[in-house]
């Protein structure tokens, strides 16, 4: 070895003067294995931040009986701690969506959060039932239903019924679509859901056809 004869100074400073190839390889290997071990050790700690089995159980899909719902009735169920609205729409309500098509920001819900099997202006598997998460896409408040029409609603004379977010005034139509130039960027999200039968709705899980 060329550097076998070290003077006292280099011995004390432990300097890099004897960083030969074999030692450099050893340092690299140790650092690699040590780094991998460190990453591995971080796994349980990072994992502990993800939802626990309790949270998952609480967030499991919810079954709802929609058999008794009257036309025009709005029902709120809790799924993953969030309000999910089920609105049984009357033919008039469905017709109003045609009128709001030009007023809303994303009429075809192209950029909004919804499953692929929910399409068009009605945003539903069965047009009669709107299923959406009642959380404003702006900053997370829950909008209130404004079902009265026209000036009676206190919103505008041409109001077709829909939802108003109390926090920053975003307006949504009866398909949960946000009106143009509102603080909220997107339509209300539609959660994964499926019909177990004509009267049983399962929220939180895609159907078999999906």
């Amino acid at each position: 070895m060329s550097d076998a004869k070290l003077d006292a100074t280099s011995e004390h400073t432990g300097c890099a003067c004897s960083l030969d190839a074999s030692r450099r390889n050893l340092i690299a290997a140790t650092a690699a294995v040590g780094g991998a071990a460190g990453l591995g050790a971080a796994v349980p700690f990072v994992a502990s931040f993800t939802p626990s089995e309790r949270a998952k159980a609480a967030g499991a899909p919810v079954e709802v009986d929609i058999g008794g719902m009257q036309p025009g009735e709005l029902k709120t169920v809790e799924w993953r701690g969030k309000p999910v609205w089920i609105l049984r729409r009357t033919p008039e309500m469905l017709a109003s969506l045609k009128k709001t098509d030009d007023l809303v920001a994303d009429p075809e819900s192209l950029r909004s959060d919804q499953p692929a099997y929910v399409k068009g202006e009605a945003r539903a598997i069965k047009d009669e039932y709107l299923v959406c998460v009642g959380i404003c896409t702006h900053l997370g408040c829950s909008p209130t239903a404004k079902m009265a029409l026209g000036s009676e609603s206190g919103i505008s004379d041409s109001w077709q019924g829909g939802f108003l977010c109390p926090c920053h005034g975003s307006l949504f139509d009866l398909a949960g679509r946000v009106y143009k130039s509102m603080p909220a960027p997107d339509n209300l999200p539609v959660p994964p859901h499926t019909y177990l039968s004509d009267t049983r709705l399962l929220i939180g899980e895609d159907g078999k056809e999906a």
């Binding site: 796994v43 349980p44 700690f45 990072v46 994992a47 502990s48 993800t50 626990s52 089995e53 309790r54």
Partner: peptide
């Protein structure tokens, strides 16, 4: 026991 069972990685910690 919740930590030991329900929290991911909880038992190791």
């Amino acid at each position: 026991e919740y930590i030991m069972r329900d929290v991911p990685g909880g038992w190791i910690i």
